[in-house]
Amino acid sequence: MDLSMEISLVCIVDAEGRKVAAQCIDSTPKAIVALLERHGPMERVVIETGRITPWVALGLHELGVAIVCIDARQAHQSIKAMKAYKTDPHDAAGLAQLARTGFYKEVHGKSPTSHGVRSMITARAHLVEARVRLDNAFRGLCATFGIRPGAGQGERFLARVRAAIAVPGLGDAVAALLRARIGLVDEIRQMDREIKAISIASPACQTLMSIPGLGVQTSAAFAAAVDEAGRFKRPHTARAYFGLVPRGHQSGELDWTGRITKQGDGTVRKLLYEAANSILTRTRQTFALKT
Score class of each variant (00 low, 15 high):
1 M>I: 13
5 M>Q: 06
8 S>D: 07
11 C>S: 12
12 I>P: 01
13 V>L: 05
14 D>I: 08
17 G>L: 05
17 G>P: 04
19 K>N: 04
20 V>L: 14
25 I>W: 07
38 R>P: 00
42 M>L: 14
43 E>I: 08
45 V>K: 02
49 T>K: 10
57 A>W: 05
58 L>F: 05
60 L>C: 04
62 E>W: 12
67 I>L: 11
68 V>F: 14
71 D>E: 15
73 R>S: 12
73 R>L: 11
76 H>L: 05
77 Q>E: 07
89 P>T: 08
96 A>P: 00
97 Q>L: 08
99 A>N: 04
101 T>Y: 10
102 G>Q: 06
105 K>C: 04
111 S>Y: 02
112 P>Y: 13
113 T>S: 09
116 G>I: 01
117 V>F: 04
119 S>K: 07
120 M>R: 08
122 T>Q: 14
127 L>C: 04
130 A>I: 09
131 R>P: 00
132 V>H: 05
132 V>Q: 12
138 F>D: 01
140 G>R: 10
145 F>T: 13
147 I>H: 10
147 I>A: 09
149 P>T: 04
149 P>D: 02
151 A>L: 15
157 F>E: 00
162 R>T: 11
163 A>E: 15
168 P>A: 09
168 P>T: 12
170 L>F: 09
173 A>P: 03
183 G>E: 15
184 L>A: 02
186 D>I: 05
188 I>C: 03
189 R>A: 10
190 Q>H: 10
194 E>K: 07
194 E>W: 08
195 I>T: 05
197 A>H: 09
202 S>K: 09
207 T>F: 13
207 T>D: 10
208 L>T: 13
211 I>E: 02
211 I>K: 04
214 L>F: 13
215 G>I: 02
218 T>H: 05
219 S>Y: 01
222 F>K: 00
226 V>Y: 14
228 E>H: 11
230 G>N: 14
230 G>M: 02
231 R>I: 02
239 R>A: 15
241 Y>R: 13
244 L>D: 06
244 L>G: 01
244 L>A: 12
253 E>K: 14
255 D>E: 12
257 T>W: 03
257 T>D: 08
260 I>Y: 06
261 T>F: 03
264 G>F: 00
264 G>M: 05
265 D>T: 14
266 G>P: 01
267 T>L: 15
268 V>T: 09
268 V>G: 00
269 R>G: 04
269 R>P: 02
269 R>S: 10
269 R>C: 11
276 A>Q: 00
279 I>R: 07
290 K>W: 02
